[in-house]
Measured scan of single mutants.
Amino acid sequence: MSIQHFRVALIPFFAAFCLPVFAHPETLVKVKDAEDQLGARVGYIELDLNSGKILESFRPEERFPMMSTFKVLLCGAVLSRVDAGQEQLGRRIHYSQNDLVKYSPVTEKHLTDGMTVRELCSAAITMSDNTAANLLLTTIGGPKELTAFLHNMGDHVTRLDRWEPELNEAIPNDERDTTMPAAMATTLRKLLTGELLTLASRQQLIDWMEADKVAGPLLRSALPAGWFIADKSGASERGSRGIIAALGPDGKPSRIVVIYTTGSQATMDERNRQIAEIGASLIKHW
């Protein structure tokens, strides 16, 4: 058993032996400061991975655009179909130039040979490839079927209504393609630790998130040596930015963190910096 498999397999085991986890309101002070700095709403939640207890939250039940963070949920739905014998990670999917949409750094290189379902999930999560996400959405029946999958998990909040890139429109008060921090954190925890997916599929999902290559300026920039993080970021119109993550010290995840912001006029660099500073406060007061 690899170190990674050891880590995921023991998450339920550690729940019975973990020390009490204490919240630190200092992080919420930073979240509120980020709102002031960005001139935008910020949603935040910090969840204990083992118990599911909410440690801190700010606007946990307000809607925010999901942006590309939905791609983790999408690959969770794909893995659920794999577990049920309805899909194979090794199945190759062929597509054409007409299928390519904006920001497809991986799929645009494989027009001649296509990509496997496994490769598409990797591209969608680690590189946020939009065509990969659309191709995967097609395999499960489209955005409405992803919403149905989430409903069956008990998440009646999170919804996907459109495809890439239209889902990134982020119109104020538009509930399409949105979630709430509390709903996203709970759903992510179920995917990573619950019985919905097999152990192998849970491991695969967290491996893809751990290999994320496009979230460096966010929480990863504040991470001390030896800490673990598996994450997925997102960005969209109207100053929207977000990240969902499982992270913790000693090389294993122990908390879920979800951060969303929307409605800012700030630059992408400034949005990144504010999220990184929230992460730094979280780690300092861990």
Rank of each mutant, 00 (worst) to 15 (best):
S2N: 14
I3N: 13
H5Y: 13
H5L: 15
V8S: 15
A9N: 12
A9H: 12
L10V: 14
L10H: 08
L10C: 15
P12D: 08
P12E: 07
F13G: 08
A15K: 06
P20L: 05
P20S: 12
H24Y: 06
E35G: 03
D36V: 13
L38D: 07
L38Q: 06
A40D: 08
V42A: 05
G43P: 00
Y44A: 01
N50S: 15
S51N: 07
G52Y: 03
G52R: 04
K53R: 13
L55F: 07
L55P: 03
L55S: 04
L55R: 07
E56A: 11
S57I: 05
S57W: 09
S57M: 10
R59N: 08
P60Q: 12
E62K: 06
P65N: 07
L73V: 11
L74H: 00
L74T: 05
V82R: 06
V82T: 08
D83T: 03
L89R: 03
L89M: 09
G90Q: 13
G90Y: 12
R91S: 05
I93P: 00
S96C: 11
Q97P: 15
D99N: 11
D99E: 13
Y103C: 05
V106L: 10
D113S: 14
D113N: 05
T116Q: 08
V117E: 00
A123G: 04
I125G: 03
T126A: 10
N134P: 06
N134I: 02
N134E: 02
L135W: 00
T139E: 11
I140L: 13
K144M: 15
E145P: 07
L146R: 01
A148I: 12
M153S: 11
M153I: 14
H156Q: 12
H156C: 12
W163R: 06
W163T: 07
E166A: 10
N168Q: 04
N168T: 03
A170L: 09
P172M: 11
N173S: 11
D174P: 00
D174K: 03
E175D: 13
E175R: 09
E175Y: 11
E175T: 12
R176D: 05
D177K: 02
P181T: 02
A183R: 06
T186Y: 14
L188Y: 04
R189S: 10
K190D: 11
G194L: 08
L197R: 03
T198G: 10
T198D: 09
A200Y: 10
R202Q: 05
Q203L: 09
Q203H: 10
Q203S: 11
Q204T: 13
D207H: 14
W208V: 00
M209I: 15
A211K: 15
A211S: 11
L218Q: 01
L219C: 02
L219P: 02
R220P: 01
R220V: 02
R220C: 02
S221E: 10
L223H: 02
L223M: 11
P224W: 00
A225F: 10
A225C: 11
W227Y: 04
F228C: 06
I229R: 00
A235S: 12
E237N: 07
R238F: 12
G239M: 04
G239E: 05
R241V: 00
R241S: 02
G242T: 02
G242P: 00
I243R: 00
I244E: 00
A246T: 08
P249D: 04
G251H: 10
G251R: 09
P253A: 14
R255P: 00
R255C: 03
R255G: 02
V258I: 09
Y260V: 04
Q265E: 15
T267C: 11
M268W: 08
M268T: 07
I275Y: 03
A276V: 09
I278R: 00
G279C: 09
S281I: 12
L282I: 14
I283T: 06
I283D: 01
K284I: 09
K284L: 11
K284A: 14
W286R: 02
